[in-house]
Amino acid sequence: MPHPTLDASVSPLRQRLIDDMNMRRFSRETQRNYLRDIGRLATFLGRSPDTATSDDLRRFQIEQQHDGVPVPTMNSIVSALRFFFTHTVDRPDLARRLVRLAHPRKLPVVLSRDEVARLLNATTCLKHQAALSVAYGAGLRVAEVSMLKVADVDSERMLLRVERGKGGRYRNAMLSQDLLTLLRQWWIVGRQQGVMHREGWLFPDSMQ
């Protein structure tokens, strides 16, 4: 990730926060979320967030509850503020004052075989069928599917290499024989249409 350039529109405190996140190789999305959430505290205070007191943080969290802010959102804000107070302004005592709320996790809805078949057959586009099959069959997120490259398909070990997984981590996903066969069909069609290349994306945006 390129290092942001300090200019007159960026305060020294904000730049320090950005530098701290860059040093830890936070993703762009995480950086945007942290900047937004710390900005919420600044808006609540009406002043710079590094001037917050433990009582300010308590009032901030109480107001969030009264406003009906969802628990996952509140916990995400806590993560951002803990990072800010621990690493950027060196106030770990304030970070410890922030309370994370218990949040019961619901079990995901599992589709039946018929429902999966209807989902995959909802499109006649081979590219879309292959992308949906990868997402479902290999358990990948939409962003992970969109970032796959042809070289990420390891037919010898029957694996998919996911380079930009959650948290920016690398991982491997299992590749079934049926899914490999479908991807090979898409490779042939994509090559014929001139959109697939050995060093290119597995699902290039230019293909509709």
Rank of each mutant, 00 (worst) to 15 (best):
G68K: 09
E199S: 10
A8P: 11
G39I: 09
G165F: 01
F44A: 01
A173D: 02
E115Q: 06
N172H: 08
R58G: 06
L179H: 03
N22T: 05
Q61R: 13
L57E: 06
V10E: 09
L98M: 10
V189L: 10
S112D: 04
A135M: 15
K127Q: 13
A130G: 09
L179I: 00
N33A: 14
A173N: 03
F83R: 02
L160C: 03
W186E: 05
G68W: 01
R14C: 14
R16M: 05
A151Y: 00
P72I: 10
Q208K: 11
D37Y: 07
H3Q: 15
R82W: 10
N22R: 13
F85V: 14
L132D: 07
R25L: 14
N75Q: 06
S155D: 15
H197P: 05
R28V: 14
R14I: 05
M147T: 14
R58Y: 13
P70V: 04
Q193S: 04
D154F: 00
R161E: 01
L175K: 07
L35V: 12
L182V: 07
A95R: 06
R113M: 11
L179T: 00
P92G: 08
R24C: 03
L119P: 14
A138Q: 06
Q129P: 14
E199T: 01
L101W: 11
L17K: 01
F85A: 08
R191M: 12
P204G: 00
F83T: 11
Q208D: 12
M1W: 02
P104W: 02
W201E: 06
V78D: 11
D55H: 12
S76M: 15
R191I: 04
D178R: 15
M147N: 11
L180C: 05
E29L: 09
L81G: 11
Q31R: 05
H3P: 14
L202T: 12
R32A: 09
R96I: 02
N121M: 06
L175I: 00
R24M: 06
R157Q: 15
D55G: 07
Q208V: 11
P12K: 01
M21E: 10
K149N: 14
Q61G: 04
W187M: 13
H197N: 07
F84T: 07
V145H: 04
F60C: 01
R25N: 15
V189I: 15
R16G: 15
T30W: 06
W186P: 13
R96G: 08
R113Q: 11
P92D: 08
V99I: 11
S76V: 13
Q193G: 03
S9L: 06
I77K: 15
Q193I: 12
P2A: 02
R105I: 13
V99P: 08
G194D: 11
R24E: 05
F26S: 03
H128I: 09
V69F: 04
R14P: 15
V109P: 15
D154A: 00
Q192A: 14
E199L: 06
W186D: 03
I62N: 12
E163W: 07
G39F: 05
F85Y: 15
L94M: 01
E199G: 08
R25C: 04
D152Y: 00
R198P: 14
F203A: 05
L119Q: 05
T88D: 12
D178H: 12
F26D: 07
V145G: 04
R36F: 08
K149A: 03
V153H: 00
R97W: 08
V109I: 14
P108C: 00
P104E: 02
D154C: 01
L13H: 10
